[in-house]
Nucleic acid binder design. Structure first.
Lengths: 211, 211, 211, 211
DNA sequence: CATGAATGAGAGTTCATTCAT
DNA sequence: TATGAATGAACTCTCATTCAT
């Protein structure tokens, strides 16, 4: 399964009515988006500047507005893209037919790998809380909903015990997010596989005393 | 145990060398800190303005600088204060002698209650990622360390199974943070007790199929 | 000999990286520099304001920062320009082949004429003592060095008696500066030629009793 | 002859109507004046602050206004005091009965000694050009007038050749000022006596070729 | 489609001065 | 007489956005 099949094409990332019509235009748009990911990731939304983006992209300042309406709109495009990319990465890491706690481990492993490759992920999603609250909410609501749906399916399949799957989904999502922050972005002293294995044990058996 | 025993006095919240020396000054400082919590909580660090803070506090613009060196420094003071307050609230909610997964449930319940009372909590801590990265890191590193220490103790007491307690602490912290966001700040459709109970079940027994 | 041959081009007066790239930009830069000379000359560095400069230049406030990094940097550019211009004016007033005390008189006459045409000269150089001490020092050190070099040459040529030429150069420079202040800027009741002639007599024969 | 006999008492330095009435008040006033000389000398008029002055003086901010009307007024008091002090120092250095070029040398030596002891002299007088133009003008006009009067007297006594004594006085004053700046304040690599001797030679015999 | 100069609202910060205690 | 908190006008500088070329 081609990894990027679920990823949105960047052709649609420009603001409405500003899609490029020529190959040269598509190239400029792509350079602006890459530059914006770097700029927002390094400096955060408010510290980032349009001139910083165009400087990185090697275009003139005014060219930015050929493709985007505003600073907000390119940031939104980026958040949406990030949100979809990370969802796709997690989905792609799940083996076909996988279920239950095992499936959650695979998704976490995919997420950890993505976070290591895209360290700007947190800076962009987190700043959306302030710069684009709707997108922020949509990202976590959507992610939780996908996890809860997996849990529902697993319960039905008998590979997971029943319970309040919305609460459990938010708990599992928080777990993943903070493991990704700590062991994907801030430090790499644990192997992703070991982190995922420990998380799987927690999710399967809990922390209660054995026996 | 008096709930606030671990809270820092607000006397020390002014920038160094700017501590108030009169009762009137202490009152003004307190009004500024309360106003800043509201302003930063509602608008986020960058959208917040000093004039917004002084307007809420009912002081002149220049009075802000009688007590603080800069916008950054009052924000730092607030983040530190929040960080200490939330830690104290969680600690205070734990019954003396409590241990194991039960103790984690109590701490989470304390945290959820705190989050409901202080909805600005997330806006302030989260924006520290951008406005005061050291404080942000210190907050989560410190919280994770406290949780891991509790886990170590519980394992030693036989009330928790052994495992990689650093990874587990980050997992548990993420769980708490996201449950607090969803069911403390964004919506109140679940009772905190029910959320805490579901989390306790997850932490004790995991999600694996029951045998 | 074209009088301005030694003058720096104003193209290089913008802050580094902010040089204009179009004719329109060069025109704006020139207007800002002229306006700044007037503003600093009339009001002094600290009383001068950027908005005063842009108002005189007929540009928007923000346009100032298209060409200069700060108030300090345009002031520095102006001091340097003034310093070079006055040196060039003095040099240009010296007849080729002139030497000894006669040459000093010619340089003084050139300086007096320059001071009368550029009454902002003193306000700008003098305030550099506070706003740009390095440039201030460099201006007078450089001027003294040029005068001392002329003295050395004249002594070698036998058109001047030997002595401590560094001390003498500072003395002669001070003489010129104060004659320029009094009879160039503050009042014009003496003809520049008469002033220069009196100074020449002083420098040639001293004030001692004749006979 | 007591050196300070011509110095103004500092009792009269407060703003009108604000003279101290008690010994404690006189002490506070004196501390403020000393602190102001240091603050203005180190930082210049505009960079100096009232709070910097009171901090140095060890008094409360508000106490400043017990003795002075404004920042300008204490600066004016200081400029006047400096101007009178330097005049007194030069006068005191002249031997009774001295005349002609010899007398000028003595006055210069007194001035150089004063400048070395009061390095804030230039910063204060020079900034008066901007902060108190009338006092600045009065200082130099007055100084030039005193020098010219000495010249007149010397010419009448036959110890000096006749000439345009106003022009010559400004020339001599500028000489003194710049020698004081260079060899009194900026560097001390020349002995004051040697500087004064070189200046005397210049003033007596000029720089023309001997013979 | 690309360029880069021009715009101006708005921010944080300073500090001389006032005043109640 | 001394204190120090309060005031607010004024400043420099930033940068998203517009627009003529």
């Amino acid at each position: 399964m081609p990894k990027d099949s679920a990823l949105p094409s960047r052709n649609g990332a420009a603001s409405p009515g500003k899609e490029p019509r020529t190959a040269r235009g598509r190239e400029t748009l792509r350079r602006l988006l890459d530059a914006a990911a770097a700029e927002f990731g390094e400096r955060g939304f408010h510290e980032a500047s349009i001139s910083g983006i165009t400087r990185r992209a090697g275009t003139a300042l005014g060219s930015f507005y050929t493709y985007f309406d505003s600073k907000d709109s390119i940031f939104s495009a980026l958040v949406t893209h990030m949100s979809q990319s990370v969802a796709a990465a997690a989905a792609a890491a799940v083996a076909p037919g996988s279920t239950g706690v095992r499936r959650e481990r695979e998704a976490l492993a995919g997420f950890l790998a993505f976070a290591r490759q895209h360290k700007e992920l947190y800076r962009i999603i987190d700043e959306a809380e302030f710069a684009d609250p709707d997108a922020y909410r949509a990202h976590y609501m959507g992610t939780a909903k996908r996890i809860a749906a997996r849990f529902d399916e697993s319960v039905a399949a008998g590979t997971m015990s029943p319970g309040d799957n919305e609460v459990r989904a938010w708990a599992a999502m928080g777990m993943n997010v903070f493991l990704g922050l700590r062991f994907g972005v801030w430090g790499e002293e644990r192997e992703p596989d070991d982190v995922a294995a420990e998380a799987e044990r927690l999710l399967r058996d809990g922390l209660g005393p054995r026996g």
